[in-house]
Amino acid sequence: MSAYSTEVQLATSLLCSSSGAMQMLQLHRKLLQRCSITEEEFCFIISRCSRFLLVGERLEDRAVVARTSLRLCSGYGGGKCGGGGCQQLHLCKFFVYGNCRFAKGRKSCKFSHDIYSDHNYGLLRECTLHELNEDQLFLLLLQNDPALLPEVTQLTHTWTA
């Protein structure tokens, strides 16, 4: 897939700029505006690259969803991360949500808001996500990292006959 790394990066950027998903034909058209890629090459990339998930039954209705295996480090927030060999991002999850109460306050957040720190940038580069802007990266993480999903509260119903 490395032969198509530019196309994969462009497609990922386009998807993340469009709420994380796009109709397959629309993505191909937008990709053609930025690089020359045949329909055959496009289909090969979309169907074989783990960065993309095809959704839908009929070919003309299929959508492409951006994916990543990159996650926020679950031990980072609690000080339980091993550090050096960690293969997950060290970021404030509230910063990713866009609502860290320390982002613009006088007190600084004790967790990183720097996606370009040495640790984070190395991981982004390794996953070929280093060219995404902050908003695109956060959308991709929110769409893929189960730890960033909101907690679901269990509803209890009292049924009466």
Rank of each mutant, 00 (worst) to 15 (best):
A3R: 13
C43P: 00
M1H: 09
V55E: 02
C43S: 06
G85P: 05
C35G: 03
Y116G: 05
V8W: 09
V152S: 10
I46L: 07
T6L: 15
C92H: 10
T12A: 10
L31H: 09
R106F: 14
C100F: 14
T128K: 15
L137G: 02
L25K: 04
G105M: 08
M1A: 13
C92K: 08
F111L: 14
L59A: 13
T153E: 15
L72K: 05
L141N: 06
R106L: 14
N144K: 01
W159H: 11
P146E: 10
R48K: 06
Q9S: 14
I46Q: 01
G82F: 07
V152E: 11
L132Y: 07
V152A: 10
F111H: 13
S5N: 14
L14W: 08
C73D: 08
E131I: 05
L132C: 08
C127D: 15
C109T: 04
V65W: 08
F52E: 00
G82Q: 06
V65P: 03
C92T: 13
L27Q: 04
D114H: 14
Q9A: 15
G98D: 13
P146T: 12
F102R: 10
K93P: 13
L70N: 08
L141D: 06
H90W: 00
E57C: 02
A11F: 03
L10M: 15
D61W: 01
Q26D: 09
V96R: 03
L72N: 10
L14C: 02
Q26Y: 03
H119P: 06
G56V: 11
A63V: 03
G56Q: 04
Q26G: 00
F44R: 04
R62F: 01
F95I: 05
L72A: 13
N99K: 14
L140C: 04
L70I: 09
S18Q: 08
T12E: 06
L129Q: 03
L10R: 14
L142G: 01
L123D: 09
S74E: 12
